[in-house]
Each structure stands twice: as structure tokens, then as C-alpha cells.
């Protein structure tokens, strides 16, 4: 009996359409955001939104404090997460290949699977009171609280991307340096890390992007006061939290427009980081990502 197969060409077209969906989605996100930002470009809308004051009652809709907040938060979080991430990579890659390394790796994988809201929730009850008592004044909902929690959130991403890149290095490098009498930590410091610099840098930027795109941690832990993050213990608001807060509460038109501006700024920032990653290490998207994205590589929540 003859089985009739659908024409190959149709199938290919169908699959191609599916592949186009992501491109269509990303372009429409960008266009829709730009469309809703357009009113800003008439009158003095732009200067009102890109100012340092957010006081909707007085007609002040500046989002610059939130931009500063997002930057401060993500850089601080990366600063806290990066050194231990490298440490953990070193540990599991060269120092301990036994049971402990395996446990650490599995836990790292597992950490990527813990919902963000849970990190935030636990932090509210564990970290906030401690920071509060540390700073004397203040509520404990602060830059430092959010940054520490966010650091824990992005740590596994950085570890896994770095680790994948290290595993991709030619094994001969380790063998050759060991044969010259390098101790494991020397191999890591002088051969493996330098050989994987690009991948490590890309991992850091990836972590930065994730930190910048995260909403819930700052929404739950930063206190959300629309002010410049002047110290580690001040309350502040990130761009992401700003979007969430304003859409949920306000409804004045300029407040909304500031939200679209915030969305656009965020989108462009993260897209720029994405571009930098590609420029730094083009293999990261092709290879390292593939294994890590299965662990929610760039998930922003």
C-alpha cells in the first residue's frame, strides 16, 4: 500500500513560519513600545520623563532615579555574585572533582529552578530584619537587601555559563599545564581562566542582563521609593519595579508614558548587553548557551 506523504515543501514552509515567530514577536514588542512612546517626542514630554523627579501629584514624571536604581542594583548584584561564582567554578572544575563537586553542581542547577518569588519571599523574612538592625535607621528594604538577594539569584547562571565554557576548553590545556608541574589552582589562574576570559566576561554580562531585567526581587525588597539610590541602605526603585507599580496603580496618561519609556530603555539596555555578549564571545550563544539555557539561562524573574 502506498502511503502519501505531505509535500516536503509545505513542511519546510510551515517550519520556517514557526522560526519567524520569534522575530515577529521581538519586532512587534519594539514597535509597540516605540508607538506608545511617540507622544513623548512632542512638546516637552521627553525632558519631563527624563528628569530626576518623580512626583506625579506635582506633574513630575522623571524616570532617571529608576534608571540609576536599576544600574546600581544590577552592578552591585554582579559585584557580589561574580567572585564566588568564579570560586565555585574553580572548585568544581579543578579542585574537587569528587562527591562534593557533584553536590555543588547539582545544587547550582537546582538553584536555577527555584522560583524568584521564593527568593524574594524568604529574603523578606530572613534578610530584611538583619539589614534593618544593621543600618539602625531605615526599614531594611534597601539597595543592599535587594542586591544580595539578586546576587544569589544570578549566581547559578554565571557559574553554569563559566563552567560550560571551561569544559569546552581543549582538555589538552589542563593536561599540558599539569605535566609542567602546575598545581590545580595554578592551572586555573594561569592557563584555564586566561584561555576562557571571553567566556567568563560574557557570563558576567549575562548575569548583569539578568539582574537588570529582574522585577520581583526589587519590587519585594527595594522599598520602591522613587529616589536616587544614595547609599547601600536607602530605599530605591528599579525600572522594572516602576513598570509593575505604575501599571498596577496609576492611570494618568503621562505616568503611563513614563512606563513605556522605562520599558523601552530597559529593552534597549538588555538588547545592548546581548549585542556585547555576541561581540565578546560568539560561541556563547551557539554552544554555552544551549546547555545553560536549559537551566533558564536568561530568565529574568
Amino acid at each position: 500500500m502506498l502511503k502519501i506523504n505531505p509535500p516536503e515543501k509545505w513542511i519546510e514552509t510551515g517550519l520556517f513560519m514557526a522560526a519567524v515567530v520569534s522575530a515577529v514577536a521581538i519586532v512587534s514588542i519594539l514597535l509597540l513600545l516605540i508607538y506608545f512612546c511617540l507622544p513623548l517626542f512632542s512638546g516637552n514630554g521627553l525632558s519631563r520623563v527624563f528628569s530626576w523627579r518623580w512626583q506625579p501629584i506635582d506633574g513630575q514624571f522623571g524616570i532617571l532615579p529608576m534608571c540609576a536604581g536599576s544600574l546600581a542594583l544590577s552592578i552591585l548584584a554582579l559585584g557580589i555574585a561574580f567572585p564566588p561564582a568564579i570560586g565555585i567554578c574553580t572548585l568544581v572544575h579543578v579542585l574537587s572533582r569528587g562527591v562534593f563537586a557533584r553536590i555543588v553542581l547539582i545544587l547550582t542547577h537546582f538553584m536555577t529552578g527555584i522560583p524568584t518569588v521564593i527568593y524574594g519571599f524568604v529574603s523578606v523574612f530572613v534578610l530584611v530584619p538583619r539589614i534593618r538592625s544593621l543600618s539602625e535607621a531605615g526599614t531594611g528594604f534597601s539597595l543592599l537587601t535587594a542586591a544580595i538577594t539578586l546576587a544569589i539569584l544570578i549566581l547559578p547562571t554565571i557559574v553554569l555559563v563559566c563552567y560550560t565554557r571551561l569544559e569546552q576548553l581543549d582538555p589538552v590545556l589542563r593536561l599540558a599545564s599539569a605535566a609542567m608541574g602546575f598545581t590545580p589552582i595554578q592551572q586555573m589562574r594561569h592557563v584555564l581562566m586566561p584561555a576562557a576570559t571571553k567566556g567568563v566576561a560574557a557570563a558576567a554580562i549575562l548575569g548583569l542582563g539578568r539582574a537588570m531585567g529582574d522585577t520581583l526581587i526589587s519590587l519585594m525588597l527595594a522599598g520602591n521609593a522613587a529616589q536616587f539610590p544614595g547609599s547601600l541602605f536607602t530605599s530605591f526603585r528599579s525600572l522594572t519595579a516602576h513598570i509593575g507599580l505604575v501599571v498596577a496603580t496609576d492611570s494618568q496618561s503621562l505616568a503611563y508614558q513614563s512606563v513605556f519609556a522605562a520599558g523601552l530603555v530597559l529593552f534597549l539596555l538588555v538588547a545592548a548587553l546581548n549585542l556585547i555578549i555576541r561581540k565578546t564571545d560568539n560561541r556563547i550563544t551557539a554552544n554555552a548557551f544551549l546547555r545553560v539555557q536549559e537551566t533558564r539561562h536568561e530568565q529574568n524573574f
Binding site: 599539569a178 605535566a179 609542567m180 608541574g181 602546575f182 598545581t183 595554578q186
Partner: peptide
């Protein structure tokens, strides 16, 4: 180990 490997080149 590292002394050994330095004295035995490969």
C-alpha cells in the same frame, strides 16, 4: 605532584 612533574618533562 607538582615537583615530580617539573622534574619529569613531557
Amino acid at each position: 605532584l607538582s615537583d615530580l612533574r617539573r622534574r619529569v618533562g613531557m
